[in-house]
């Protein structure tokens, strides 16, 4: 239990650091703004109580806000995603998945399930975040393109990250 907690804290710090120091510096274009820090929320075990997930996602968003001068923005978006995650898992997972301490990962759930899960929740997060950021539908289609291309890159980075860091998770 304690080891597990430490694992999560280390993982949290690592993911936040990678987001801030590596991913935020990928300045390819204004249409590519990946936010891979949501990986932490997405890989919380399936059986975790929804309200804990909501709390964790708000906290994750708050930490990101602190480092990007955008109070409330990431907090609202990540919290929304954390809340929707519960619904998505309820309809896409079997009873057995909720029984153990299974993390949503490629090795446990298969690549197709994983990609669909990541894409849908990342899309939700990005739609919320990007439209909230410009606070109007004035630049509707331009923002939509930013969302779609950023989602693609986020999912790409998350999948690579998952393959790198989560390979040896114990059963």
């Amino acid at each position: 239990m304690v080891i597990e907690l430490i694992t999560y804290i280390v993982r949290f710090l690592l993911i936040i650091l990678i987001q801030l120091l590596v991913v935020n510096n990928i300045e390819l274009s204004t249409y590519v703004n990946p936010y891979m820090y949501i990986l932490f929320v997405l890989t919380i075990p399936i059986s975790m109580k929804p309200w804990v997930v909501v709390l964790i996602s708000f906290f994750t968003g708050m930490v990101m806000d602190t480092f990007s001068s955008t109070p409330g923005l990431h907090m609202a978006a990540t919290g929304f995603m954390g809340y929707m995650r519960g619904f998505y898992l309820q309809f896409s997972c079997s009873k057995e998945d909720f029984a153990g301490r299974i993390e949503p990962s490629i090795s446990k759930k298969g690549i197709i399930w994983y990609i669909v899960y990541m894409t849908i929740l990342t899309l939700l997060h990005h739609v919320f975040l990007f439209y909230l950021e410009i606070y109007s539908f004035k630049e509707f289609f331009r923002t939509l393109w930013r969302i779609l291309s950023s989602t693609f890159f986020t999912v790409l980075i998350i999948t690579i990250g998952q393959l790198l860091f989560y390979r040896n998770t114990k059963t």
């Binding site: 909501v54 709390l55 708000f58 409330g72 907090m75 609202a76 809340y83 606070y135």
Partner: peptide, 26 residues
């Protein structure tokens, strides 16, 4: 209770966001 928790936290972040957009005092 999950929804209520979510709702209040979301409300909180919107208030923070709105205040920041309105007043540059931040």
């Amino acid at each position: 209770y999950t929804f209520i928790l979510f709702f209040f936290l979301e409300l909180f972040s919107f208030v923070v966001l709105y205040q920041y957009n309105n007043y540059q005092k931040a």
